[in-house]
C-alpha cells in the first residue's frame, strides 16, 4: 500500500449529499450506517481495508477511506437506505485525494422557496418547495413523519 514520506497511508475522500434536501442527520448515525453497509456488503476483512470514517458536515458529508478502496466504499454507500430512523439516500458527488479539493466542490444547502399547507387524499401535509422544481411534503403523525416527493408542476401542490 502506497505511503506518504511521513509513513501515513494515502487516503481518498468521497463527497456525499443527503436526500431529501434539508434533512439534518447525526454524524455518528451516518458513520454507523456507512460502517454497517460496508460490513454487510464486503465483510469484516474488506471493511477493515476500507476503514471508512465520516469527516465533515453541512447537509453533506465527506467520507474518508484508504486509497484504492473508494469504489467499494461508493458501492456500499449506494446500499444505504436509512440513517437511524430516517429514510434517506446518500448520493456520491465526487471523489478526491485531498480535503482541500473536495471542500471546493461542496455547495450550500438548496434554497427554500416557499412553505405552505396542502391537502392530498384527505390528509394535510406541510409542503416545502426547493429550487429545481422540487416540493417535499411532510405529514407529522403519531407514528413519526411520512414524506411524499412531488414537483411544482404536479396538480396536487399547485
Amino acid at each position: 500500500m502506497s505511503q506518504l514520506p511521513s509513513q501515513r497511508e494515502r487516503r481518498r475522500y468521497v463527497l456525499v449529499r443527503f436526500v431529501p434536501e434539508g434533512i439534518s442527520l447525526d454524524p455518528r448515525e451516518v458513520y454507523a450506517a456507512v460502517a454497517e453497509a460496508c460490513t454487510s456488503l464486503w465483510g469484516d476483512t474488506v471493511s477493515s481495508e476500507i476503514s471508512p470514517s465520516v469527516m465533515a458536515w453541512e447537509g453533506q458529508a465527506i467520507v474518508r477511506c484508504r486509497r484504492g478502496t473508494e469504489d467499494r466504499l461508493i458501492t456500499a454507500i449506494s446500499t444505504i437506505t436509512r440513517v437511524g430512523d430516517e429514510r434517506v439516500a446518500l448520493r456520491t458527488i465526487t471523489t478526491s485525494g485531498t480535503l482541500h479539493a473536495i471542500r471546493s466542490r461542496m455547495y450550500p444547502r438548496p434554497e427554500l422557496l416557499w412553505e405552505r399547507k396542502v391537502g392530498i387524499g384527505g390528509r394535510i401535509f406541510l409542503a416545502r418547495a426547493y429550487s429545481g422544481q422540487k416540493v417535499d411534503l411532510i405529514e407529522k403523525g403519531i407514528k413519526g413523519q411520512e414524506m411524499l416527493f412531488f414537483a411544482t408542476e404536479d396538480g396536487e401542490v399547485r
Binding site: 429545481g132 422540487k134 414524506m147 411524499l148 416527493f149 414537483a151 404536479d154
Partner: peptide, 13 residues
C-alpha cells in the same frame, strides 16, 4: 405515486 411516495414528474427530474 400512488404506488410509491414520489410523483412521476419528481422521479423523472
Amino acid at each position: 405515486y400512488p404506488e410509491g411516495d414520489s410523483s412521476i414528474r419528481r422521479m423523472a427530474l
